[in-house]
């Protein structure tokens, strides 16, 4: 529902439209609004599940925060101060009413408001995803085009082998290898840290983004490669050749654009996955991203932080998928926004 199944969307959409004669409805604000509404409902349920899961998991924030040798009345006082002395249902109600006031609570450990944490740490994660996706596209699009169209014997085989290797490499290992090579041996990248201003942040982000590329480029370029092969089989490419379309128009309008929809949908899905998976890069590259905060908060059973971050992650993932679908339908009108 949120993500069109890769590949099948286009054909089924075509089949559904076959034989119809009237003008086809364009992606309208109505549809976007409906999807937005659905997205908010999904995000709400994600939040509810997060609320329950963190409370069902063993360990509690007071013992995590106060450590080993806290006296029982200290613990009781702390529970009261943290609002954990009431039953979970009341806690949920309190959280919900806070949510409507835009108050996500504050960290039980550091006392920093969750909204403040999101404001400072979320941009880092979003920038990391953005640069990763940009670099992935810059690499994948020409690569897949070239492999599909160059018709060099053995090249597709080499491509498949290399991408399989790229896919199989664990990203923490890639991160450490690249950090060692670029950071220590060649000294062209800082080993840790972050600068929140653009474009200075790019110098800290390009290496972790490159790590993401090692996983993303194989996935994306393989999907795009096979879509392009499929497109090249189609007759309209022949039509385009006969029509004598100029090469740049031809590659874009007749080869790439009709092949992009599955890639875009996949990319939006991968971006959603990345929201969670960048945490390993945030740890290794010491980037002050939100994923790292989540991990710390989970180990410390910092309830408000966990709930707040998961809520925002839920919204983000759902909206990324929505944006992916919108972009796919803009690029390829055969893809319908549902």
């Amino acid at each position: 529902m949120t993500a069109t199944p890769i590949g099948s969307g286009v054909e089924s959409a075509v089949r559904a439209q076959e034989g119809e004669d009237g003008p086809r409805p364009q992606p309208t604000w109505e549809k976007v609004l409906r999807r937005t509404g659905r997205a908010i409902i999904v995000a709400f349920w994600v939040m509810v599940v997060a609320f329950m899961l963190i409370r069902l998991s063993p360990g509690d924030p007071v013992s995590a925060a106060l450590g080993a040798d806290a006296a029982p009345d200290t613990v009781a006082a702390a529970r009261k101060a943290l609002g954990l002395d009431v039953d979970p249902l009341t806690q949920f109600w309190n959280y919900l009413t806070g949510l409507f006031r835009g108050d996500l609570g504050a960290s039980l450990i550091s006392g920093v408001p969750v909204t403040e944490m999101l404001r400072t740490n979320m941009p880092v994660t979003l920038w990391l995803i953005f640069t990763s996706v940009t670099m992935t596209l810059v690499i994948s699009l020409p690569l897949a085009m070239f492999i599909a169209m160059a018709r060099i014997p053995g090249l597709p085989y080499l491509f498949r082998t290399l991408t399989a290797i790229g896919l199989a490499l664990p990203s923490f290992l890639v991160a450490l290898i690249l950090l060692y090579q670029f950071g220590l041996i060649w000294q062209v990248a800082p080993i840790f840290g972050y600068d929140p201003t653009f474009p200075a942040n790019l110098q800290y982000l390009w290496l972790p983004s490159l790590v993401n590329c090692v996983v993303l480029v194989p996935v994306l370029s393989r999907v795009l490669y096979s879509s392009i092969l499929d497109t090249l089989e189609e007759e309209f490419v022949e039509t385009g050749v006969v029509r004598g379309v100029r090469w740049n128009r031809f590659y874009w309008l007749y080869v790439l654009r009709p092949s992009l929809a599955p890639t875009v949908v996949l990319l939006s899905y991968m971006m959603g996955v990345m929201v969670g998976s960048t945490v390993i890069l945030e740890i290794i590259f010491a980037l002050p991203g939100i994923g790292r905060e989540l991990v710390t908060a989970v180990t410390m059973r910092d309830y408000p932080v966990v709930q707040g971050i998961i809520l925002v992650f839920g919204i983000l993932v759902v909206f990324l998928s929505l944006i992916g679908d919108i972009v796919a339908s803009l690029l390829d009108p055969r893809v319908r926004l549902t």
């Binding site: 950090l179 950071g183 220590l184 840290g193 740890i283 010491a286």
Partner: peptide, 19 residues
């Protein structure tokens, strides 16, 4: 004081002279 959560990164940062 710079937080570097990963032990391997801390080692690299020390080797590179950045800490």
């Amino acid at each position: 004081y710079q937080a570097i959560p990963d032990a391997a990164t801390r080692k690299l940062a020390l080797q590179a002279g950045q800490v």
